[in-house]
């Protein structure tokens, strides 16, 4: 059984311009020791769905539907106070830019100790020792001294490690990492991803990795859900996504990755057009306006997220054989072999 299950989650916000349907019928499962990558461009709803898990999208103008089940109990229907006890303790989250995500006026240690003491009745001394342990566990050198540093005194990679230490000090079951490496150098990025992976394996944590970068997915995810306009359009094991993707949007994402071995002067193929408005969503397939393969709307019904092979689900009107033929024609070789 999955550790955390998101079932048919929908999140919409009432704004002055109308109701924004940020997340629309999203389902996925997180399992211990595994990483689910959530990919999509800005505004695809990937961060909103993750923030909703820990209740951070709750507000008077938000409507949240569906279920988020942890240990067989639904989180959506729990009170704010109940959710707060889970947040940080059972489900921890780290964010994109560790400089802006850590409080600039408080020492690293103070911030970690605060997290520990919010959830556990321990003395300041004991919490501080645990904070030092946590800093050591994420590979921060001389943690006994670093604990008294301010965020601006650390490098970007060290800051993200400190964020991780804060998130993992309470031994959570689930780690949500929202673009954890986007603000980092490529080499540091690889270190942080490797660190997340080893901590995951060590403690049996379930990881939800949100990114717009398929390179990060290739390095760190076991399974991938591709989101577009608030919906999952393709969901498959990582290798399948790279070797035999079936959704035209996923193809577009793969095309927009630059490759060193591409012929000189070859232009990247960007996906034409803009993501649709989430306020006045069209009937039918959300990707249709940008899809180069669908000549006319097949009908006004949105395609279902249907399983094509075990573990591989695609939301597309194109016939399966047609999709596979197009992919073979576009890519003589697979991306992983390149």
């Amino acid at each position: 059984m999955a550790l955390l299950e998101v079932r048919d989650l929908s999140v919409s916000f009432a704004t002055l311009d109308g109701v924004v349907r940020a997340v629309d019928g999203v389902s996925y499962e997180l399992e211990r020791g595994r990483t689910l990558g959530l990919v999509g461009e800005s505004g695809s709803g990937k961060s909103v769905s993750a923030l909703t898990i820990i209740g951070l999208t709750r507000s008077p103008n938000a409507t949240i539907g569906g279920q988020i089940v942890l240990d067989g109990r639904d989180l959506v229907s729990r009170s704010d106070a109940e959710l707060r006890r889970i947040r940080g303790k059972r489900i921890a989250m780290i964010f994109q830019d560790p400089l802006s995500s850590l409080h600039p006026y408080f020492r690293i240690g103070v911030q970690i100790v605060e997290a520990i003491r919010t959830h556990e009745d321990v003395s300041k001394r004991a919490a501080r020792l645990r904070a030092i342990e946590a800093l050591e566990a994420v590979g921060i050198p001389r943690p006994g001294r670093r604990i008294d540093s301010y965020p601006h005194e650390l490098s970007g990679g060290m800051r993200q490690r400190a964020m991780l230490a804060m998130a993992l000090a309470l031994r959570p079951d689930v780690l949500i990492a929202d673009e954890p490496t986007t603000a980092l150098d490529v080499t540091v990025q690889a270190q942080v991803l490797e660190l997340i992976r080893s901590l995951r394996d060590e403690h049996g944590i379930a990881v939800l990795l949100i990114t717009h970068d398929l390179g990060v997915i290739a390095q760190a995810a076991d399974e991938v859900a591709v989101m577009y306009a608030g919906r999952i359009v393709e969901h498959a094991p990582r290798d399948t996504i790279f070797e035999s993707p079936e959704h035209p949007y996923t193809w577009g994402l793969l095309d927009s990755i630059p490759h060193l071995d591409a012929p000189r002067g070859e232009r990247l193929r960007a996906i034409q057009g803009q993501p649709p408005s989430l306020i006045r969503a069209s009937e039918g397939c959300k990707f249709f306006p940008r899809c180069p393969y669908q000549p006319a709307p097949a009908d006004e019904i949105e395609p279902e997220l249907a399983e094509t092979t075990p573990g591989h689900r695609v939301r597309c009107h194109l016939p399966v054989e047609e999709r596979r033929r197009i992919w073979r024609e576009r890519h003589g070789s697979t991306l992983l072999e390149r």
Binding site: R87, A92, M163
Partner: peptide, 14 residues
């Protein structure tokens, strides 16, 4: 609306 406020909330602070 700063990121570190979101972090504080994510820690489970009241």
């Amino acid at each position: 609306s700063e990121d570190y406020i979101r972090t504080a909330r994510a820690k489970g602070l009241s």
